[in-house]
Amino acid sequence: MAARPVVEARGIHKHFGAHHVLKGVDLVLAERELAFVIGPSGSGKSTLLRCLNRLEEPSSGSVMVDGVDMLDARTDLNHARQRVGMVFQSFNLYPHMTALGNVTLALRKVAGKSSAEADALGQSALARVGLADRAGHTPGQLSGGQQQRVAIARAIALEPRVMLFDEPTSALDPELVGSVLAVMRDLRQSGMAMVVVSHEMGFARNAADRVLFMDQGLIVEEGTPAQIFESPAQERTRAFIGQIQKH
């Protein structure tokens, strides 16, 4: 019998008023797997991610994370969300707190750790992203790349079962992208299951297990990076890949 998947989303539909943004999407993610989601803007990639931790409420479908039904009214959603780390395009660090304060807030308030425990865990999370010496800095004193790494530390400090990355490098200056990708690569090597929505095709080629191409609210095609990038089966995929490689 195969191991239980970390994420099992089935038949996700999402309507925003008259807009039908997700039209029945399935996403199953195994332990240690990195799924990379590509597609034109407005294809529903971000919405799909946000449905996985219920920042968006799916109109229908089911989402299981680590065996917990995220859509069940009886599930303690706040508790369940600790298992799903999320990293945002715009970092969304709390500007009134230090880097360490950002990382430890949920440890103290949700995971119920004491201040001392939370500080120790927070420090080690910051060390994992290479920012142990920036614990006392506020977001305003950090570069964009450093801010995004603090945001990653904030998520991994809670020891999630899966990490969701929503265009984590899109708001960064080009020279700062590398540091964030390096942290993501480390995370991948430590065996973290990840879903990444991004335009960093180089990262997809050498770090992803699977690439999913989304368009108009559907997963059009999925496969290994080699399959998707070298010999896509669908016309729409081919057009999208071709367009990207021109740049």
């Binding site: 920042l55 369940a80 969300r81 945002f88 009134h96 949920a106 308030k109």
Partner: peptide, 27 residues
Amino acid sequence: IPKGQWEAARSTGLSFGQTLINVVLPQ
């Protein structure tokens, strides 16, 4: 206060009230 602050806090499991008091109100 930008929506992203709410989303980031809620994504780490903070409740509505905790987010309001610890993240949104101080700002």
